[in-house]
């Protein structure tokens, strides 16, 4: 076990806020607030785009399958297979076979977010009391309205659980996006020979803070989206 001589938390924080002489390539200035902010924003951009793609694909599919009560094996299978996909392999394959850049990395990250959203939406909709759905149908609501106005709102806590799971996977995997040519915060981590050990630790700190902030925001969003009636039930 070798502990790094240069890496320290104070060094890492200095790296985030002020450019420093690289301790690897002498003379170059690396890090600093502007660079850090640029990478944070890029990281966030990739994450949000990927999450949006995953949501657009998986939410309607999960709603439909759950509403029809079909494809349980499909949903469960996708769930397990989705969790088993090694993130590193996805990024590496996409980079070498399809190409580098935001246009390929964002859809690749979205693939990793599909499973949690699909499975949770499916399960959430299936858990809706069938009497409630019958009542809605009896009131003359169309099937589409039942999905949108009855099943989705009632399934929101479960659906948001899936969205949060997807966000965690995507924001984590965006860290290795520099392998596919997208400069996220992972750049500090992967290009150790440019940023040095302080940069490495700074990257780790910023990625962790970004992930926790994103998760916190989604938890708040979940609270806003959940109807008051459901909140009472969970107490």
């Amino acid at each position: 076990m070798t502990t790094l001589p240069f890496a320290s938390f104070t060094g890492a924080f200095e790296f985030i806020f002020a450019p420093q002489d690289s301790n690897v390539t002498g003379g170059n200035q690396v890090g600093g607030f502007e660079k850090s902010l640029e990478l944070v924003l890029k990281h966030l951009e990739v994450t949000v785009i990927a999450l949006a793609i995953a949501l657009i694909v998986a939410l309607p599919l999960g709603l439909y399958l759950g509403h029809r009560g079909r494809g349980e094996l499909f949903a469960v299978g996708i769930g397990t297979a989705g969790r088993a996909i090694p993130e590193l392999a996805v990024i590496a394959l996409v980079a070498v076979l399809i190409g580098v850049g935001l246009k390929t990395v964002a859809p690749a990250l979205a693939i990793l977010g599909l499973a949690p959203i699909l499975v949770n939406t499916y399960v959430g909709v299936r858990q809706v009391d069938s009497a409630t759905v019958e009542a809605a149908r009896g009131m003359g609501m169309s099937e589409l309205d039942i999905m949108r106005k009855v099943e989705l709102p009632l399934a929101i806590p479960t659906v948001m659980g899936g969205v949060r799971g997807a966000a965690i996977v995507i924001v984590a995997t965006a860290t290795i996006a520099p392998l596919a040519g997208v400069e996220t915060l992972g750049d500090f981590i992967i290009n150790r020979n440019v940023y040095g050990e302080n940069g490495l630790l700074a990257g780790a700190i910023l990625v962790a803070l970004l992930a926790l902030t994103l998760e916190g925001s989604l938890a708040l969003l979940q609270r806003r989206l959940t109807s008051d009636g459901l909140k009472l039930k969970t107490v």
Partner: peptide
């Protein structure tokens, strides 16, 4: 436990680096 779950593993590795260093531990 939620915080530990949310911190991306790859970042967590390097956060521990000054304490436990490189390797399997």
């Amino acid at each position: 436990t939620g915080i530990l779950y949310t911190i991306p593993s790859i970042a967590f590795f390097f956060l521990l680096l000054p304490i436990t260093g490189f390797g399997r531990d």
